[in-house]
C-alpha cells in the first residue's frame, strides 16, 4: 500500500513536533505573564525599563504561542482540526456571553466584588477542554 501523503512527515510525527512547540511557547508565555504581573512589585520595584522589557517579552512569547497554535492546527487531520476549531469557537462564544453577563452582574450591583479577567480565562479554558473531549467522544 503506497502512502498517499501531501505533507513531508506522518500525522503522528507532525502532531508530536507541533505539540512540543506549542507546549514550549505556551510555557514561555505563562512564565513571561507571571514575570510581568509580579516582577514590578517583587523583583525590580517598578523600574520602567524592566517593566517595558517584560511586557515586550510577554507580547513576543504570546505571538509565538499564537503562531505555534496555528501550526499545530495545520498539522492535524481534517477531523481533529474540526473538533479543535469547534471547541475554540464555543469557548470564544462562551467567553463573550458569560463575560458580558459577568460584567452586568457587577454593574447592576448583584455581586459586590470586581469581575476578574482571570475568571473569564478559566471559564473559556474549561469550556474549550470540555468541548474537545465531547468532540472526540461524538466522533468515536
Amino acid at each position: 500500500m503506497n502512502k498517499e501523503t501531501t505533507q513531508n512527515s506522518s500525522l503522528e510525527a507532525r502532531a508530536r513536533k507541533t505539540t512540543i512547540q506549542l507546549a514550549f511557547w505556551t510555557s514561555a508565555w505563562v512564565m513571561s505573564t507571571a514575570l510581568t504581573t509580579f516582577g514590578p512589585e517583587y523583583i525590580w520595584d517598578y523600574n520602567t525599563t524592566l517593566s517595558m522589557i517584560s511586557v515586550l517579552l510577554q507580547l513576543g512569547f504570546g505571538f509565538g504561542m499564537i503562531f505555534a497554535h496555528k501550526q499545530h492546527l495545520v498539522g492535524l487531520d481534517d477531523l481533529m482540526r474540526k473538533i479543535q476549531l469547534e471547541a475554540m469557537a464555543i469557548a470564544l462564544g462562551v467567553g463573550l456571553v458569560v463575560g458580558l453577563s459577568y460584567e452586568a452582574l457587577e454593574a447592576s450591583k448583584l455581586i459586590t466584588f470586581e469581575p476578574e479577567i482571570s475568571h473569564l480565562i478559566v471559564i473559556m479554558a474549561l469550556t474549550c477542554v470540555t468541548s474537545v473531549v465531547l468532540g472526540y467522544r461524538r466522533y468515536k
Binding site: K3, E4, T6, D77, D78, Y139
Partner: peptide, 25 residues
Amino acid sequence: ATALDVSRQTINAIEKGKFDPSLPL
C-alpha cells in the same frame, strides 16, 4: 488511516457517515 495520513478515528467517523472529509482528503 496511515496510507491517507489521517487518524484511525477519522476513518471510522467517515465510514460511519458521521464526518464528511475535505476535498483534498
